[in-house]
Amino acid sequence: MKHQSIPRVVGKWLIPPILLFALYVQFHGDFGPGGGFQAGVIFAAAVVLYALIFGLQAAKQIVKPRIIETLVALGVLLYAGTGLISLFLGYNFLDYTALDPDSAPHGQHLGIFLVELGVGITVAAVMIAIFFAFAGRRRLR
């Protein structure tokens, strides 16, 4: 689609709002519908749209596959790490009260924020990695 002007122009206008919307869904998930799973998928969809319009190589220049591979593991580590922190502070695994023992709702809120961020990072990175793996493969026959 590199030489078609309408998808290029529409894509240029649409991709920034999609990325912004993904961030909104990620950080507003506590108050409205949304959360890490949806935000990750929407973020990945924006990258996929970019790759479809401007080509895979251009997308790989912006979203470096090496970084994506790191992020795939980083999200899970952030999630499990939040659990381990509460474990080391003397609470149960994934009991976020540990993060702020003086005020339980505040600690829970912080814990949910960190965990959702981990989910979002992993989901977005996995979806982008899967798309790159499929799109980067050449037909053999």
């Binding site: 959360g35 799973f37 990750g40 998928v41 979806m127 899967i130 793996a133 499929f134 493969r137």
Partner: peptide, 27 residues
């Protein structure tokens, strides 16, 4: 179900990757 949907797409893509490899091996 929210988590099942995202796990579903992840496993679907794993299945599709297997299909691609089977297609390459068997034509």
């Amino acid at each position: 179900i929210l988590t099942a949907i995202v796990v579903g797409i992840a496993t679907l893509s794993l299945g599709l990757a297997l299909v691609v490899r089977i297609g390459e091996a068997y034509d």
